[in-house]
Amino acid sequence: MTDSATDASTDRIPALAELTTIRVGGAPAAFVPADDRDTLVRAVRDAVTSGEDWLVLGGGSNLVVADDGFDGTVIHVRTRGVERLSASDGRIRIRVQAGEPWDDLVALTVRNGWSGIEALSGIPGSTGAAPVQNIGAYGQELESALVGVEFLDEETGDVLYLRRDELGLGYRTSVLKRGRRGVVLSVDLELDDTTASDGVGAPLSAPVAYAQLADALAVPLGARVPVAELRRAVLALRSSKGMVLDPADPDSVSSGSFFTNPIVSESFARSLPRNAPRWPQEPAEPDAVIGLPPGGLHPLDVPPLATGEYTVKLSAAWLIENAGIHRGFALPGSGAGISSKHTLAIVNRGGGTAADVVQLADFIQSRVQAEFGVLLQPEPVMVGISL
Rank of each mutant, 00 (worst) to 15 (best):
residue 41 V to N: 02
residue 42 R to E: 12
residue 42 R to I: 09
residue 42 R to T: 14
residue 43 A to T: 01
residue 46 D to A: 13
residue 46 D to F: 04
residue 47 A to N: 04
residue 47 A to Y: 03
residue 48 V to H: 05
residue 49 T to P: 07
residue 49 T to Y: 13
residue 50 S to E: 08
residue 52 E to Y: 06
residue 54 W to M: 06
residue 54 W to N: 03
residue 56 V to Y: 04
residue 56 V to R: 07
residue 59 G to Y: 02
residue 60 G to E: 00
residue 62 N to I: 03
residue 62 N to Q: 04
residue 64 V to D: 02
residue 65 V to F: 06
residue 70 F to L: 02
residue 70 F to Q: 00
residue 71 D to A: 15
residue 74 V to C: 04
residue 75 I to L: 09
residue 75 I to V: 13
residue 77 V to H: 03
residue 79 T to A: 13
residue 80 R to V: 13
residue 81 G to W: 08
residue 81 G to I: 13
residue 82 V to T: 09
residue 83 E to V: 10
residue 85 L to K: 07
residue 85 L to V: 07
residue 86 S to G: 12
residue 88 S to K: 10
residue 90 G to N: 13
residue 90 G to F: 15
residue 91 R to A: 15
residue 93 R to H: 15
residue 95 R to K: 10
residue 96 V to Y: 00
residue 98 A to M: 07
residue 104 D to W: 14
residue 105 L to Q: 01
residue 105 L to F: 15
residue 105 L to I: 06
residue 106 V to Y: 00
residue 106 V to W: 03
residue 107 A to H: 06
residue 108 L to E: 11
residue 109 T to L: 03
residue 112 N to D: 14
residue 118 E to H: 10
residue 118 E to C: 11
residue 119 A to L: 06
residue 119 A to W: 00
residue 120 L to Y: 08
residue 120 L to E: 07
residue 121 S to T: 13
residue 122 G to M: 10
residue 122 G to C: 14
residue 124 P to K: 05
residue 125 G to I: 07
residue 128 G to R: 04
residue 129 A to W: 05
residue 129 A to G: 15
residue 130 A to S: 15
residue 130 A to F: 12
residue 132 V to G: 02
residue 133 Q to L: 10
residue 134 N to G: 14
residue 134 N to E: 13
residue 136 G to F: 09
residue 136 G to H: 07
residue 139 G to T: 08
residue 139 G to K: 05
residue 139 G to V: 12
residue 142 L to T: 05
residue 143 E to M: 12
residue 145 A to W: 03
residue 146 L to D: 04
residue 148 G to T: 14
residue 148 G to N: 08
residue 149 V to T: 09
residue 149 V to N: 07
residue 149 V to G: 04
residue 151 F to C: 02
residue 151 F to T: 00
residue 151 F to P: 01
residue 153 D to R: 04
residue 154 E to N: 15
residue 154 E to S: 11
residue 155 E to G: 07
residue 155 E to R: 14
residue 158 D to F: 09
residue 158 D to Q: 13
residue 159 V to M: 04
residue 159 V to H: 02
residue 160 L to Y: 03
residue 161 Y to C: 11
residue 162 L to V: 06
residue 162 L to F: 10
residue 164 R to C: 14
residue 164 R to F: 06
residue 165 D to K: 15
residue 167 L to V: 15
